[in-house]
Design a protein around this nucleic acid. Structure first.
Length: 188
DNA sequence: CTTAGGATCGCCT
DNA sequence: GGCGATCCTAAGC
């Protein structure tokens, strides 16, 4: 059980922020909902984009915390991370799933789907539903477009191994909202 | 319910 | 030239 009544601390290490983000509300231009699944990545992590040091693609990860790191996945999907930790440390939290609460119709339109459970159940789906593009890479989360609001009450957070990676698979850096029907995949 | 293949791009070897 | 922090569809059991 966690009481995330405090303001966001983007200086926190990625697993801590990843846990804190569960239950908080994230909107992009008024579209989004409650974050129900995240994953932490940092510089010492072989599974992280920042592991091999700064490049043109991961530059935002080495920028100031509290900004977005957006990358193209498999040449198709846009995925959203929130940069955290000390500036230049290459740490970020991947937003993997959201419980849709605001802008449902727009999300359905963008996703070409009706089923609320599938609108934001996965990082690529989150990107599509919220309208994330390369334009958002490096933008501050406090910018006019983004809104991040702490969870209102207690949140039961579960965790486990991350998904879709081949390195550092034992690091239990995936976090989720217990019992949520909007996860990309169940926790075991 | 599980698995396999294709789509499609930027970045790194 | 190869390979993903993925998703969707179709086929198999």
């Amino acid at each position: 059980m966690l009481l995330p009544s405090t303001p966001v601390d983007f200086l926190a290490p990625p697993p801590e922020l990843a846990r804190w983000l569960i239950g908080s509300t994230l909107l992009l231009d008024g579209v989004g909902g409650r974050i129900v699944e995240t994953e932490a990545y940092d510089r010492e992590d072989p599974a992280s984009h920042s592991f091999c040091g700064p490049t043109a693609r991961n530059a935002a990860m080495f920028g100031p915390p509290g900004h977005a790191y957006v990358y193209r996945s498999y040449g198709i999907h846009w995925c959203l991370n929130l940069v955290c930790g000390e500036a230049g440390h290459g740490a970020a939290v991947l937003i993997r799933a959201i419980e849709p609460l605001a802008g449902l119709e727009l999300m359905r339109e963008r996703r070409g789907l009706d089923d609320v459970r599938l609108l934001c159940a996965g990082p690529g789906r989150v990107g599509q539903a919220l309208g994330i593009t390369r334009e958002h890479n490096g933008l501050p989360i406090s910018a006019p477009h983004f809104m991040l609001q702490p969870a209102g009450g207690p949140v039961q957070v579960i965790y486990g191994a991350r998904i879709g990676i081949t390195k550092a698979v034992d690091q239990p850096w995936r976090f989720g909202l217990a019992g949520s029907a909007f996860l990309s995949r169940p926790f075991r």
